[in-house]
């Protein structure tokens, strides 16, 4: 269909017909991703706002709520997620330097770290379920006072929504790995790698605030 560009020798195959140049396409892709991230931030901000509201209303509940959470596990997960962000950045660098090995290895490491995050989270959740700490209405833990159900409602919503983003991220990362295996992203068209990277860093970014707010502050 790219009838207008068919005979331009300097134009890579992968530039869509409606873009003037590959620079236009790449900058549009990245700008679009940043707008998507803006949307994600506002999506999460609703829950953070609820956190601020209820923390202000019930300060003591919030303090004792943080006691119920295991800050060492949370800290471990923070380190894991930061490491995954690091390997993701290196993966993008691998695509920039056109090194398939660096891209593949770093994508794989990122997926492994993401998996590790999920495993730690699984132990945290299952421990709470075991104690009977369920979201709000189903809350059945006897050993705490205050408005714990509402604290845990916020906890489960925030970490759960974050978890869903991690799982979606693992999906995207695996897709990237699969495509890299097939030899893609080595021709300068690595906008997908960059954009998944941006998404993954945002997931990290949200956790960076989530962790101290839920686990540490008391």
């Amino acid at each position: 269909m790219a009838h207008a560009h068919a005979d331009d020798p300097n134009r890579p195959e992968w530039v869509a017909h409606f873009f003037h140049s590959k620079e236009q396409q790449l900058s549009a892709a990245k700008f679009g991703m940043w707008l998507f991230l803006a949307q994600e931030v506002l999506f999460f901000s609703g829950l953070f706002c609820a956190y601020v509201a209820f923390r202000w209303m019930y300060p003591e509940t919030w303090l004792s709520g943080a006691d119920q959470l295991n800050k060492w596990m949370g800290g471990l997960n923070t380190l894991i997620l930061i490491a995954s962000s690091f390997t993701m950045a290196l993966a993008v660098r691998g695509a920039q330097t056109k090194s398939p090995t660096a891209l593949k290895v770093n994508l794989l490491l990122t997926i492994l770290f993401a998996g590790g995050f999920c495993v730690v989270k699984y132990f945290e959740y299952s421990h709470k379920f075991h104690l009977g700490i369920f979201p709000a209405d189903h809350y059945a833990y006897e050993g705490s006072t205050g408005l714990m159900p509402i604290f845990f409602a916020i906890y489960y919503c925030l970490t759960g929504l974050h978890m869903i983003h991690v799982v979606i991220g693992i999906g995207f990362l695996s897709w990237l790995l699969f495509k890299t295996q097939k030899g893609r992203f080595m021709d300068g068209n690595y906008a997908y790698v960059e954009n998944v990277g941006l998404y993954w860093h945002l997931v990290d970014l949200i956790w960076i605030f989530l962790f101290p707010l839920l686990y540490l502050v008391k």
């Binding site: 999506f43 999460f44 609703g46 209820f54 489960y156």
Partner: peptide
């Protein structure tokens, strides 16, 4: 603006499904 509606409706739906209480 729309993402904030998304989270609001999601929380109302969660309230109906699981009774999260927010």
């Amino acid at each position: 603006a729309t993402p904030v509606l998304a989270i609001t409706l999601l929380l109302v739906a969660m309230e109906r499904i699981m009774g999260i209480g927010i």
